[in-house]
Design a protein around this nucleic acid. Sequence first.
DNA 1: TGTAGTCATACCAGTTTTGAAGTCAAGCCA
DNA 2: TGGCTTGACTTCAAAACTGGTATGACTACA
Lengths: 201, 201
Amino acid sequence: MGTEPMGRRERKKAATRKAISDAATLMFIERGFDEVSIREIAEAADVSPTTVFAHFAQKEAIIFDEDDEQREQLVSAVRDRPRGTTISAALRAYYLQALLEVEHDHDGENLQLFMDLIDRTPALRDYAARMWLRHEDALADAIAVEFHLDTPSEEIRAYARFVLQIQLLATGTRNTRAVIEAGFRVLDAGWAPVEAELSAR
Amino acid sequence: MGTEPMGRRERKKAATRKAISDAATLMFIERGFDEVSIREIAEAADVSPTTVFAHFAQKEAIIFDEDDEQREQLVSAVRDRPRGTTISAALRAYYLQALLEVEHDHDGENLQLFMDLIDRTPALRDYAARMWLRHEDALADAIAVEFHLDTPSEEIRAYARFVLQIQLLATGTRNTRAVIEAGFRVLDAGWAPVEAELSAR
DNA sequence: TGTAGTCATACCAGTTTTGAAGTCAAGCCA
DNA sequence: TGGCTTGACTTCAAAACTGGTATGACTACA
């Protein structure tokens, strides 16, 4: 898919896009996101500033790839889960596995540098969170499909939102795994048991 | 509280602030947030653009009052709830009551115009959501206090985040009440019963 | 007298607009 | 088959606009 032969035009466009993205990412990692201007990026990629915005709607978008893949994985985690597995268990497993993959990072330190950059740049953290949350409808729809519903119920919508929030909650902290597990604990069994247990001292 | 006699200086400052805010709000409602520039606002309020930013850190802040009150109400809903009421029930009641107060709007249509403005302006929706979510730590702390904990557990943090999300989820739709109730249904009893019921057809 | 509020001015960076120039894909005609 | 026309796409320079910051002066108040 997506491997149809590209014409010269398409290829050139893709090359320009990549040149901009590569130049920018390098400079961002070295000097920090806010310390690199669009005009500098354009200069480094040898294009005009206008061209940068012809490819990327915002400065933040320059370093993020399409998120269709993420969305597909999320939906697939629900749709293609093993028989007998609950949706929550499937999503929880997906989060934990994604976490593992980041930890045993194949790509060496590149990914680490990249994530540090995002971590220390509020504008990028926000943008990434926003991208992630855009999957909410897709996730809710996927869940609705599992139950043969035309449209997600309000409960499903709420659940989808909560599930996505768990991920954001987790990436912001050190003990990522513990946060994911706590999030799903609350989300699966509800708050009532937590409150009951805490009340019992 | 806050009613100590103000000196001339303080009064003038407050007057300037109000002049800016009033002028801006009017123009925003009439022409839309994005169609009014800071320079225009300054002109209309008869101050310099610099002065606008001496009072408000961002353009979005011009039309929002302090949110300390909101936070206090939220915390109070937990802290001062009737004996025997669960935290969830208290927060749910608080949301529903706040909704009622908006519906039986004393201030006539002004509030409606104001909320429409926010509704149709992404930058303002985001800003309002961000303001609201800043209460997360305060809410989590308040809940921790209820259980005599020094610091909120991960479950409490997750719960606090979910609860605040319910509000955002609800304000974005027509059937606000139904969304609030669905949100708390999922949050209180958990997702498991929802999935079980949906699975049973 | 000192300080807080205001100001004019200049500036920066992201983003949009404009209108033009160059490049390519595709059909058309010889 | 080869060249030409056409229209769409990509890039461009240049300028403008906007939110926001920095500077240093001025003024009214405490």
